[in-house]
Amino acid sequence: MATYSITPDFDALALGLDANQSKVYQQLCTRRQCTSAELIQRCHIHNPHAIIESINLRLKALHSEWLILASNPRAPLSGPTQSMRVPLAYYRLRKTVAISRPERT
């Protein structure tokens, strides 16, 4: 998968994130989108949604233009593979303030 370079207005150190939060934040800064399963596997964490919420609280407290958007978790399916039986959510670090464009004359 392609690697992206997202540069939010605050880095993990400025946000005062702990080790797990920092790993998740860095992962979202280098990937366009991550699933909860990818965060659990790559960052060796449990309960990614709680970690995302705590990072978002810090971003909001510092009035950041960036937030981590989260999808509603997909309900587990009764499919033939284990991956289908796991709830799945998608996370994306995104700038929330609209970029102003010059008016056309």
Rank of each mutant, 00 (worst) to 15 (best):
T3K: 15
T3L: 15
Y4R: 14
I6R: 15
I6M: 12
I6L: 15
T7S: 14
T7Q: 13
T7M: 11
P8A: 08
D9N: 14
D9C: 13
D11S: 11
A12W: 03
L13K: 14
G16V: 01
A19S: 04
Q21S: 07
K23N: 08
V24K: 06
Y25E: 02
Y25W: 12
L28I: 03
L28Y: 03
C29F: 00
T30S: 10
T30H: 02
R31D: 04
Q33T: 09
Q33E: 14
S36E: 04
E38M: 11
I40Y: 04
Q41N: 12
Q41F: 10
Q41H: 13
R42G: 05
H44I: 09
I45P: 03
I45H: 00
A50G: 11
I51V: 14
I52T: 10
I52C: 13
E53K: 15
N56F: 05
N56A: 04
L57K: 13
L57S: 11
R58D: 06
K60C: 09
K60P: 08
A61K: 15
A61S: 15
L62H: 13
L62M: 12
L62A: 10
H63C: 12
S64Q: 06
E65D: 13
E65R: 15
E65L: 14
W66C: 08
I68W: 00
L69Y: 01
L69H: 06
L69I: 08
L69G: 05
A70K: 05
A70N: 03
A70W: 08
S71N: 06
P73Q: 02
P76W: 05
L77G: 02
L77T: 01
S78D: 03
G79L: 00
T81C: 02
Q82E: 11
Q82F: 08
Q82H: 01
Q82W: 09
S83W: 01
R85K: 12
L88N: 09
A89V: 10
Y90V: 14
R92K: 15
L93G: 06
L93R: 05
R94S: 08
K95T: 01
K95V: 01
T96P: 03
T96N: 09
A98Q: 11
I99Y: 09
I99S: 10
S100D: 00
R101W: 05
P102L: 11
R104G: 04
R104W: 10
T105Y: 10
T105E: 13
